[in-house]
Simulated assay, not measured.
Amino acid sequence: MTKRSIVTLTLAAIALGACGQRADIQPLANSSLPPAPYGSEAKPEAEQLLELETLAAPQRSVELRRRSEEREDDPFDLPPE
């Protein structure tokens, strides 16, 4: 690759990295939000539809290892038969 193509690719990557939406998401004009879920009378607002469920983004429950440590013996770590 030439020096010119490397510079062009770098600038393109920086330009794409700068793209991003900074405003709240709103429904398009003359359109409505999805209908209420089956069995529910309340129609959710746009912010409620954007919230992730707990299973979609679970909280980390284990501490990451920060240094090299010996692993505990795993009784299920068996060689193949």
Rank of each mutant, 00 (worst) to 15 (best):
P37T: 15
P37N: 12
P37L: 09
P37Y: 12
P37H: 13
Y38N: 13
Y38V: 15
Y38W: 08
G39Y: 03
G39W: 05
E41F: 15
E41T: 15
E41W: 09
A42N: 13
A42M: 06
A42H: 10
K43I: 11
K43E: 13
K43M: 11
P44T: 08
P44M: 04
P44I: 10
P44R: 03
P44A: 07
P44W: 04
E45G: 13
A46I: 15
A46W: 07
A46T: 14
E47F: 06
E47V: 14
Q48M: 07
Q48N: 11
L49Q: 12
L49S: 07
L49V: 06
L49M: 15
L49K: 10
L49P: 02
L50A: 13
L50G: 02
E51W: 02
E51N: 07
E51L: 11
L52K: 12
E53M: 06
E53I: 02
E53A: 12
E53G: 14
E53T: 14
T54I: 06
T54V: 06
T54E: 15
T54H: 05
L55H: 12
L55C: 04
L55R: 11
A56W: 05
A56C: 10
A57H: 06
A57Y: 03
P58T: 02
P58F: 03
P58Q: 02
Q59F: 04
Q59C: 05
Q59T: 14
R60G: 06
S61P: 00
S61H: 06
S61Y: 05
S61D: 10
S61W: 02
S61L: 09
V62P: 00
V62G: 00
V62H: 03
V62Y: 04
E63H: 04
E63L: 10
L64G: 01
L64R: 08
L64D: 03
L64E: 02
L64T: 05
R65F: 02
R65C: 00
R65V: 03
R65G: 02
R66E: 05
R66P: 00
R66Q: 10
R67W: 06
R67A: 09
R67Q: 14
S68I: 12
S68M: 07
S68H: 01
E69L: 11
E69M: 09
E69Y: 03
E70M: 06
E70S: 07
E70T: 07
E70N: 05
E70W: 02
E70G: 01
